[in-house]
Amino acid sequence: MAELRIKEVCKEKGVKVMDLSTMIGVSQTNTSNIINGKVNPSLETLEKIASALNVPITELFNAGTNEELTALIQHKGDFYKACTIAELENIVGKIKEKQ
């Protein structure tokens, strides 16, 4: 799964976990677990977080490079981010292996 950077975005925006929880309608415990990578959020939850923080959803993912985001993929609850065609091909290969 791509690493999320929700904690960093919250700090940048001056938003506390408790406030974010209220804004997205998720318990503080679950929000904390999402931020700390203990659970994978749904795409709907990521959209709510991005909206609450007033950022594009891609901002919630570590870029890893300076390239434009090529793809954000959700497969069976896992999220993958690819910044290059090679990374995208690698993700597709991993998904095929799991099936």
Rank of each mutant, 00 (worst) to 15 (best):
G37E: 04
I24S: 03
E67I: 00
E12T: 05
S27R: 01
T29H: 10
S27M: 13
A52Y: 12
K76N: 14
I35T: 02
K96P: 04
E44P: 01
L72V: 03
A82D: 05
E67N: 12
N66K: 06
I73R: 03
V26G: 00
G37L: 05
I85N: 13
I24Q: 04
E12N: 14
Q99E: 14
S42P: 09
K98S: 14
E97T: 04
P56F: 08
K76P: 06
G14W: 11
E3T: 12
E47T: 11
M23W: 02
D19H: 02
K98Q: 13
L53R: 09
T45C: 11
L4P: 04
D19L: 02
F61G: 04
E8P: 05
N90E: 15
N30E: 14
I95R: 01
L4G: 08
T45A: 09
A52R: 02
Y80M: 06
L72T: 01
D78R: 00
V55P: 05
N66I: 09
N90K: 09
M1F: 07
N36C: 10
I85D: 12
V9A: 05
D78W: 01
E12P: 01
L72F: 09
T22D: 11
V9G: 10
Q99T: 00
N62K: 15
K76V: 08
